[in-house]
Every structure is written in structure tokens, then in C-alpha cells.
């Protein structure tokens, strides 16, 4: 019997969210006295055996070319075969873009209860209960899974990657792979930039920046911190910034280690997408801005003066000119 972790890759590399899922899965396996195993689909350039350091003992690799393109219907079918073969009791996904597409399908397929957006290890003292975020991070719920097989989709940045010693045994898994119905024709990736949902640090700005022409200083700060960029909804609606940077209740929900909000008032719908950040810094010229109530650190002042100083101070700290 196993705790099976879906190892999600992009361009042959294992995503950070999957390292969290592996660490989490290993811990669940330890709790249940089972073995942590992994499943990876398609071509991978990374050394899979090395993932053993996150506690996974065996990795099933289904290296069929069809699987290089993402099709949740095809992938679900393959993962179901691996789950059956390994007698999976718990199946762990990262609750990222791919996880959100596959985990629900697998849940319906196996009639296995799913908790998506889990933020903690399961409580097995009385049944099997998993904590997840609800109401856009304004509250949490404890969800009891009532089925024999359980599926957990782990929120990115909710569980610390734990790495130790060990190598995983990598075995080729011979699965039946159906032809997919979805044909991917084009992929665009903002190369070199940090994906927002995976970023440790996010620099975000709002209407206080007055116009898109002033984003240079925001970008400079983000670059200096190796941070991803985000913005408030009106900024995206006005096309000052692309839609995929919009965070909040109706945008992307993030939980980075550090969220820096510049010229954002902190409306409840904005907070809903960022309130799980570990540390929040607010720069706003209005001392009454609601965001200060949700912040850990703040500066009351003009962003146009503070942001360049911020960048300079970080550069000084890092010893770069």
C-alpha cells in the first residue's frame, strides 16, 4: 500500500510545488505506516532518483510521448492505473494549475474524496480530516474524507519542503495511454520571470502608482528581490498590467513568504487573495489605508520616494552596486 504523490513537471523539471507535495506525502506515509511513492508522466530531464531525499521510496515513470502534452483526461487514466497497481490509500497533488485539472477527475473516477487547497497534514486521530482554506483565505474548514481512498491537493507554499538523505528507485511503468482529445497548439511562457504562484517574494502595486509608465521602479524592486510581480484588480482592468498579475478574490490567490504592497488600499477582495502571505509589507501614503491592519511592516509615505530607496537598500544589503 502506498501514499502516491503526483510529480508535476514543466519542461522536464519538477515544479517546486511538487517538492512540497513529495515532502507532505512522505510525512503522511510515515504517519500511516505506508510507503511514499511517486508518479511522473512524460519526458523528464531531471534526476528522479535524487527526489528520494524528500522521502519518496519509489517513482513510477510513464514515459510515453503522448504525456508530454497536458491532457487531464489522459493523465487521470494513467494515474488511476498507477494508483491501482501501488494500492494507493492516499494520493497527493499540488493544488496548482495541473493539480486542479487532474485531482477532481481522479476523485470522480475512483470515487475517492478530495480535499483541494489543503494547508496542513491530515488529522488521523478520528477518521481522516484535512484542513483547507475556505472563503478565499478568510477562514479554514476541516474536511473529513469518508472514502477508503483519499485525495489531497496541497496548497502551494503551505507545507515546507523537507529534504534529507536517500535515493528513490525509479521504475518504468507500462501504462495504457489513450490518445487525448485536446491538442495543444501554442505555449507562451514569460521566460526568466518567476511564476507568481511559485514565487517566494511578490512585489505588487495598485492604483497608487498613477499609471503604467511608473512601473519601472516596481519592476526594478522585484528584479532586485528575485520577486514576481502582481497588481490589484483596477490596475489589470485598466490594462496598466497584464491580467495574469491580478491577485485577489477574483484574481490569483497567492501565499508567498513576503508580499510587498505598494499603493494598494487593501480592499477586502484584494486581501482575500494575499492574506495567507507569511509577511506583508505595506507602502501607502494614507495612514488610514485598511491594508495596514493586515500588514506586518509598513511605511506611511509616498511610493515614488520610497520604492527607489527600498531597491537601493536591498542592493546595498546584497552587496550589488
Amino acid at each position: 500500500m502506498s501514499v502516491l504523490v503526483f510529480i508535476d513537471t514543466a519542461e522536464g523539471h519538477v515544479k517546486k510545488a511538487s517538492l512540497e507535495a513529495l515532502s507532505y506525502g512522505a510525512k503522511v506515509a510515515e504517519k500511516l505506516g505506508e510507503t511514499a511513492e511517486g508518479v511522473v508522466l512524460g519526458s523528464v530531464t531531471e534526476d528522479l532518483a535524487a527526489l528520494g531525499k524528500y522521502g519518496v521510496k519509489r517513482i513510477h515513470q510513464v514515459s510515453n510521448k503522448t504525456l508530454d502534452h497536458f491532457d487531464p483526461q489522459v493523465d487521470t487514466n494513467v494515474i488511476a492505473q498507477v494508483a491501482e497497481k501501488t494500492g494507493a490509500k492516499v494520493i497527493v497533488f499540488a493544488n496548482n494549475v495541473d493539480g486542479k485539472a487532474i485531482a477532481p477527475r481522479l476523485s470522480a473516477r475512483l470515487k475517492a474524496g478530495l480535499v483541494s487547497g489543503a494547508v496542513a497534514l491530515p488529522d488521523t486521530s478520528n477518521g481522516f480530516t484535512v484542513k483547507k482554506n475556505v472563503f478565499s483565505g478568510k477562514a479554514f474548514a476541516n474536511i473529513t474524507i469518508q472514502t477508503e481512498i483519499k485525495i489531497i491537493a496541497l496548497s502551494p507554499n503551505a507545507y515546507q519542503v523537507v529534504s534529507g538523505e536517500g535515493t528513490a528507485e525509479v521504475v518504468a511503468f507500462d501504462a495504457t495511454v489513450n490518445a487525448g482529445k485536446i491538442k495543444v497548439t501554442h505555449v507562451t511562457k514569460a521566460s526568466g520571470e518567476v511564476p507568481l504562484t511559485e514565487a517566494e517574494i511578490v512585489v505588487s502595486a495598485g492604483r497608487g502608482m498613477k499609471g503604467p509608465e511608473n512601473w519601472g521602479m516596481v519592476e526594478e524592486l522585484a528584479k532586485t528581490l528575485h520577486a514576481a510581480l502582481a497588481c490589484s484588480r483596477p490596475v489589470a482592468d485598466a490594462h496598466w498590467r497584464p491580467h495574469n498579475e491580478h491577485v485577489g478574490q477574483t484574481g490569483i490567490a497567492i501565499a508567498p513568504n513576503l508580499y510587498i504592497a505598494i499603493g494598494i488600499s487593501g480592499a477586502i477582495q484584494h486581501l482575500a487573495g494575499v492574506n495567507r502571505s507569511k509577511v506583508i509589507v505595506v507602502i501607502n501614503k494614507d495612514p488610514e489605508a485598511p491594508f495596514f491592519k493586515a500588514a506586518d511592516y509598513g511605511i506611511v509615505g509616498d511610493a515614488f520616494e520610497i520604492v527607489p530607496k527600498f531597491t537601493a537598500a536591498v542592493k546595498k544589503l546584497k552587496g550589488v552596486a
Partner: peptide, 10 residues
């Protein structure tokens, strides 16, 4: 998709 966009036909 993470950090980008994918276009598909179905």
C-alpha cells in the same frame, strides 16, 4: 499555466 498561457484546440 504557471507563468504563462497555453492555447489548445478541442
Amino acid at each position: 499555466i504557471e507563468g504563462g498561457e497555453e492555447i489548445c484546440e478541442v
